[in-house]
Design a protein around this nucleic acid. Structure first.
Lengths: 100, 100
DNA sequence: TCTTTAAATCGAAAAATTCCGATCTACATA
DNA sequence: TATGTAGATCGGAATTTTTCGATTTAAAGA
């Protein structure tokens, strides 16, 4: 969670990772079949089903987004729940708007 | 000049290309030594001096930014003058803000 | 304790990106 | 016409990214 502009832009350079973030804007729309309450975040395995990539690839994409500061992780038992880091996302968008 | 979100985000994934765009926000500050008037745009060779990369590499970076729709080209004689495509940049930022 | 399940990590292959020097094209000028 | 300059394009090397299957780690349940 570095919040470095370059790292964030690299994280956004792959369409699958952008999709992950976009899906998470409206979880009830994209992850309505999740066993756990959506308030806990989105379970990692939900992304696998939705994007068709392997477990290890999805895990790597989620790690990239988390390292960039765009996602937060909530580990409960054997599960990892991801949610958008709205504060970092907003400040990135603001920085981009004022510097780009 | 496709104005495709994915292509733009890929174009922004390299720090040198982001620098190019940022420098061009204030040309009088970053390209004050240009022989031609800054209103014509920024001459390609200006970027070479400033970033230290080779002519062919700079040309490729500029082409990437132009294909993404972030820059416009104005060819005059043997020179290529580049300027920001403010309209596309603004609509990209707006789209990003409302979808990401 | 043994088995199952979820997710991270490892190792390696494939693909994409970055970069350079050399070449090619176009224009300008002597 | 020959020379010089600017910039695009080509070919290839180096690096980075993407992806997968296999393994490891950790927790859950039988």
């Amino acid at each position: 969670m570095t919040t470095d502009k370059t790292e964030i832009l690299k994280a956004l350079a792959h369409p699958v990772r952008v999709s992950f973030l976009e899906w998470m804007r409206t979880p009830e729309e994209h992850f309505c079949n999740q066993a756990h309450p959506l308030e806990m975040g989105i379970c990692a395995n939900q992304f696998e089903k939705k994007c068709g990539l392997s477990q290890s690839t999805v895990s790597a994409h989620l790690a990239t987004l988390e390292k960039a500061g765009l996602l937060k992780t909530n580990r409960v038992g054997q599960w990892a729940f991801y949610s958008r880091d709205e504060e970092n996302i907003a400040s990135f968008l603001n920085e981009l708007k004022s510097t780009l």
